[in-house]
Simulated scan of single mutants.
Amino acid sequence: MRLRLLTAAVMMGLAPVAASNTLDAYLSKDTAQFTFITDSAAIGFGGADLSFGVFFNDDSDYMLTTGLNVVGVPAGEQPLTFGVGGKAYFGFIDTPDDRFQSVALGGEVRYTIPANMPMYLAAEAYYGPRVTTFGDARDLLDASVRYELEVTPGARGFIGYRYLEADMDRRRDYKMDEHVHFGVRFNF
């Protein structure tokens, strides 16, 4: 419980850092994730998205993430955007009492569906191999897909699926998330 409160306090403290911020939250039957996204100008490197997140599940597993992602639109008037970047993961597995850290590289692709009400299909994946994963884990895979619907210019609702797995020393292929989730994304 203290970890949840500490993370929420840190994320709220970061809110006034930049003018364009995003809060992304999702819930499933067994998991929850809250992510704060801001412009990387807050750390002196503009033009990228800087994210801070907390994930937890009903097995009392927790994970903190931070990432840097650069997003761009290809030349021409295409409905696709692409992003590449990296994330650092800090995981705390309850049973058995395991800890891990991973530096993962990956990216995202987003397709804007042409319609009167803006809609999007998005997919992202990050992989941390054995060489950049430490502690009680050997590697990490984090992949998700989602369908987003913009209900107002500053708010989107979404439904998605996330597959989050760490290859642990004691438990091979430990799945922390493998669920359909519902969420909201607020831009402020």
Rank of each mutant, 00 (worst) to 15 (best):
D39P: 07
A143Q: 02
T7P: 04
K175G: 03
A41D: 07
V71H: 15
S40G: 13
L149P: 01
G86E: 02
H181S: 07
G154K: 09
A155E: 13
E150G: 01
E150P: 00
E108F: 04
D177G: 14
Y174P: 02
F34E: 05
L80S: 01
V84K: 04
A42Y: 15
V17G: 04
G128I: 05
Y161D: 10
Y120A: 00
P153T: 03
G76P: 05
T152G: 02
R146P: 00
F82Q: 09
F92V: 07
A41Q: 13
A18G: 06
I113K: 08
T132Y: 03
Y111T: 02
Y161V: 13
A88I: 10
Y89W: 08
G91P: 08
P96L: 01
R138W: 11
P79S: 00
A88N: 06
G154A: 11
D98G: 08
T152Q: 05
E124P: 02
V73W: 02
Y62H: 14
A15K: 00
L141R: 01
Q78C: 09
V54A: 11
L50K: 10
G44V: 05
T132G: 01
T35K: 11
G44Q: 09
L140H: 12
T7Q: 09
M168Q: 07
A88M: 07
D24T: 04
D94G: 05
D169S: 15
H181V: 04
Y126Q: 03
T132W: 05
L140K: 11
F100C: 14
P129K: 07
F90D: 15
F188I: 12
M1A: 14
M168P: 03
E178H: 10
A19Y: 09
P16K: 00
P74R: 03
Y62D: 15
F186M: 15
T65A: 14
F45N: 11
Y127R: 03
F134E: 06
D142W: 01
G183K: 09
T66L: 13
D173K: 05
F56W: 11
D58T: 14
R146H: 03
L164K: 00
T65P: 13
H181G: 05
E178Q: 07
A48L: 05
A41H: 04
F100S: 12
T65W: 12
N116S: 11
Q101L: 12
L23P: 03
P74K: 03
I93Q: 10
A8I: 11
G86M: 07
L23V: 15
F34K: 08
V103D: 12
L23Q: 12
R162T: 04
F182L: 15
G157T: 04
V184D: 01
Y111E: 11
M117F: 05
M12Q: 10
A41I: 13
V145L: 09
H181M: 10
P96R: 09
F36H: 11
M176A: 14
L5Q: 12
G157M: 01
Y161W: 10
A48P: 05
R110Y: 02
T66W: 03
Q101E: 15
T112M: 10
R2S: 10
T133D: 08
A125W: 00
D59T: 12
P129G: 06
F45K: 13
A125Q: 00
I93E: 07
